[in-house]
Design a protein around this nucleic acid. Structure first.
Lengths: 191, 191
DNA sequence: TGCAAAACAGTAACCGTTAGGTCTATCTTC
DNA sequence: GAAGATAGACCTAACGGTTACTGTTTTGCA
């Protein structure tokens, strides 16, 4: 007995996971719109208020795994070796993120997202938040020496690449093509 | 009497305008979140269902004037003289749209939008629809001869320029700077 | 052991939004 | 003009996501 006393956190995480798993299962079984929050709560055997204690909205239940998305993007910038060129590093990371979201097992989830306007909108608004975080990371990197506007634009362009690729026929080629454009755009802002 | 018989349309338009005006006034007076649809309907002396017969959502009440936004963007492409370069034309139009939305009288509305996450999200999702329309117009222009991906990316970049400029300290300069990047990105896709 | 805080439960309500059915002014056609 | 046909608006009731409020249980810590 007497585990190192993280019981609370473990139980909380377990509850959260149970809710997320139950929700995704029900959504895939019956369709996103056909499943209500009350259904999810009942099936996961928790109160409705508990669901919203863990997730800010119904849509957030679907994108539970993308918490670290933002962190991965900003770390590309902050953890980069000095003098390592920015755009190729960003290109690689976006490529990886796109592969992750168009992977084999993700297909049913993607199909569900693309059938629901609410989920598509939520995904894009997530992207915007990520773009803001990325823009802040770019602006904070003194090696880059670019204007705030250039940083913000580049961040949004990178998210555009991700969003376009996730919906494209050939995601990998789409990322490559858009990043050729981003590379040129970035070069055009050199001081 | 007996106007050329468009009474129905005139009355409908009048109702729509009355709702939009009342809503915007109440929103500005008391704050967007503090005013409910039922308040708007009561003050405009119409039924709640009538509000939703004219506007698809509460947020749409705020952006009533931006119906032609999309049309102006696509017309830049379709109504352009043959051989007139694309990017400068797009640049001019976005500059005009930004001026329109950061004009003197629009300041209180802009402040209200920027205080409400719901309105910001709605504005961005409007932008996405416009980007898709613009992308379609670009792809349809055989003079341009660019890939679908290049068209889609450029369309999103142009909307990014608009969105960034509306929130920037110096909107005009922001549009100019981002369009220098877009010009370079576009050139990089030349066949 | 006892206490404060955190997590969860239960209920009821708020608010945007929609479905259902009705009424009435306007348009069309004769 | 009169007789439908129809669009526009009304009202009521509800649905579904979300939150406030109020307890109750569990956990961590002194």
């Amino acid at each position: 007995m007497t585990e190192p006393s993280g019981r609370r956190e473990r139980k909380k995480a377990a509850t959260r996971q149970k809710i997320a798993d139950t929700a995704l299962r029900l959504f895939l079984e019956r369709g996103y719109d056909a499943v209500g929050i009350r259904d999810v709560a009942a099936e996961a055997d928790v109160a409705v208020t508990t669901v919203f204690a863990h997730f800010a909205s119904k849509e957030a239940l679907v994108f539970e795994r993308d918490q670290d998305f933002e962190q991965r993007l900003t770390r590309v910038v902050t953890d980069r070796r000095p003098h390592e060129p920015l755009i190729p590093a960003l290109h690689r990371e976006v490529q990886a993120l796109v592969r992750h979201c168009t992977a084999e097992g993700s297909a049913p989830v993607r199909r569900m997202i693309e059938k629901s306007p609410a989920l598509l909108e939520y995904e894009e608004s997530m992207g915007l938040r990520h773009a803001q975080a990325l823009a802040a990371a770019l602006a904070a990197d003194s090696h880059l020496a670019r204007s705030t506007t250039a940083c913000r634009a580049t961040a949004r362009f990178a998210i555009d690449a991700y969003a376009l690729a996730c919906r494209a026929d050939d995601p990998g080629a789409t990322v490559d093509e858009v990043f050729r454009m981003i590379e040129a755009a970035w070069e055009a802002t050199a001081p």
